[in-house]
Design a protein around this nucleic acid. Structure first.
Lengths: 324, 324
DNA sequence: TTGTAAGCGTTATCAC
DNA sequence: GTGATAACGCTTACAA
């Protein structure tokens, strides 16, 4: 910067002003810009952040980027941050609470503008005034949480199955043993069934158990070529996909005899022309946008502590829309 | 840091030494650590980077994190960098050359330790001495490129299909019109066929064309319930998946009558128990490790300008291993 | 409007 | 081994 000032024959402060869009004599501005160009000058963002005691970097802390839902989320958060002039620091935790804490520490050292996290730590305390937004997990009214309307999505799944002619419903769930907002998917489903007097069964498993327990359960409900259920709601698309595969391998017909709805709205290879199953679609892009809006808003104190964005239904081959 | 020094009753320099693991009297070290703990002190990485004129952040520039191959790569690069004490800045470009350039600029300003990029810019010039490693696209001997052994993978696919009893081979390709290392997949396939006198056909399409032209081509080779080919090698798993789906929908039997091998080694939902097709598996984790090793090595000048890591074959339901 | 100088939190140098 | 001091590149009062 000094060199630029010398080259342009102006003072240091003037150069700084030019790069901060602070009004300056037009002739000066030109001279500075030319000098900067000539010298290939670039502002040093560290010096800048040091001075300002903050940066325009946001940290995203997420279990991994392999799970398609996580990678979708990562993609949209990255995109949205870029549009707002922020950069993204990505940390993957494999759901390990210690790693999560470590990265939160690191992010503080890095004086990031804020943290967006999808964590599995049962307890989490953000002492600092550091902007923090949680996704899919509610901690306290002090930490804004953004998620899809899991309860409503569960209700919607039940209603859709009902409309599609199913009368013996089943809710299948596999997931983390750590409580989260996504557990409400099942609650919404059950609430709708009870309210509308639709018989339903629920089977829950934890990730640690593995999918085999789900298959065992299904097996125990197969008699010859029929299953005791004709409509299944799975808490994720992955489970819906696996259930679909399992049933077909066992001689059952999907969607002719059994219809399946998942949750997430994922597509094979991320290609919207290839939905992986009929599903309750998460508004991933909206979730990303909302999380960032809250994170960067001036007064986060006034942000709702829980934001549930509407999820919609999308057919994807495991339901019989044709007969509607 | 000043506060810590005062609290501990030592000089500023001493505190600095403690946090940099520079030998210091044990009693001093203890006092400093306690004071830091008490005050909740954290080093400011901006001040540090400003001083050092470099950081321990590496930028990853990639089209998106939706494509499963990209998200796998992102995941492993993130993991590997973390293990080496680096953090990762992620930038998604949607394959737009301008965006790519912009992010490379930004990364320079951020004084990152290096850049790993999977780009689609036909021309790219890294003037700076900034460490840069390209993935899947070779630019010049000055820019190290890491990729899988695409040529060898193509040969392997042809050999496997031959071993699996196929005699009328087809190579299908859809991809970017920008030349890249991955184009060698087809070359390897063809080379093997020629060398072994196996009849083969090649059909190439660009992303802009869309998959429909591939389907049209296939349609024109279907006669009743048979296809003119019995072994197909697709340049990506996505194409293999789509081809498989198309053929089945058109009454053809995979893998009974037609066997398909893709390239990438992807799994549904990233779950290794659910391969999406028989495939030539990219050593994604190795690619990530190698790229990082080269990027961070002291003398990158001595690094090979093109590193091709071996790709292996993995059955995945679209080939008939049973009859082997 | 422009120039000057202090200071952000570190690290490195050098007497002590 | 320890402690004062300068310097990294930038922003921002404040003085000119």
């Amino acid at each position: 910067m000094k060199d630029v000032a010398r080259e342009a024959g102006v003072a240091l402060g003037t150069v700084s002003k030019v790069f901060n869009n602070i009004p300056v004599g037009e002739s000066y501005r030109l001279r500075v810009e030319q000098a900067a160009e000539k010298l290939g000058y670039q502002v040093n963002s560290y010096a800048r952040s040091l001075k300002a005691d903050k940066s325009n970097i946001v940290a995203l802390i997420i279990p991994d980027t392999i799970n398609p839902y996580f990678s979708l989320l990562t993609n949209y958060i990255s995109k949205e941050l870029a549009e707002r002039g922020y950069r993204m620091l990505l940390a993957t935790t494999k759901c390990d609470p210690d790693t999560e804490s470590k990265y939160i520490q690191m992010a503080k050292q890095d004086k990031v503008a804020g943290i967006i996290a999808l964590t599995y730590k049962p307890t989490l305390t953000i002492t600092e005034p550091l902007p923090f937004v949680s996704i899919d997990r509610y901690y306290s009214s002090a930490i804004p949480c953004v998620t899809s309307d899991n309860f409503g999505g569960g209700e919607l799944a039940a209603r859709k199955l009902e409309e599609l002619g199913c009368s013996k419903l089943l809710f299948l769930r596999i997931g983390s043993s750590v409580k989260g907002e996504t557990d409400k998917r099942g609650l919404g489903f059950e609430a709708y069934c009870r309210q509308n007097k639709i018989p339903y069964t629920t089977f829950l498993a934890n990730d640690e158990d593995g999918p085999e327990v789900i298959f065992d359960f299904l097996r125990s409900h197969i008699t010859g070529n029929t299953l005791d259920f004709d409509g299944i709601f799975c808490n994720t698309d992955k489970l819906a996909f696996m259930t679909n595969k399992f049933l077909k391998e066992n001689g059952l017909r999907v969607p002719e005899d059994i219809q399946i709805i998942g949750y997430d709205g994922l597509n094979f290879f991320g290609d919207v022309t290839m939905p992986c199953c009929s599903s309750i679609v998460q508004p991933v892009e909206e979730i990303a946008k909302t999380a960032i809006s809250i994170l960067l808003s001036e007064d986060r104190a006034s942000s709702p502590s829980l934001t549930c964005l509407p999820a919609g239904y999308r057919p994807g081959g495991t339901t019989r829309e044709d007969i509607n």
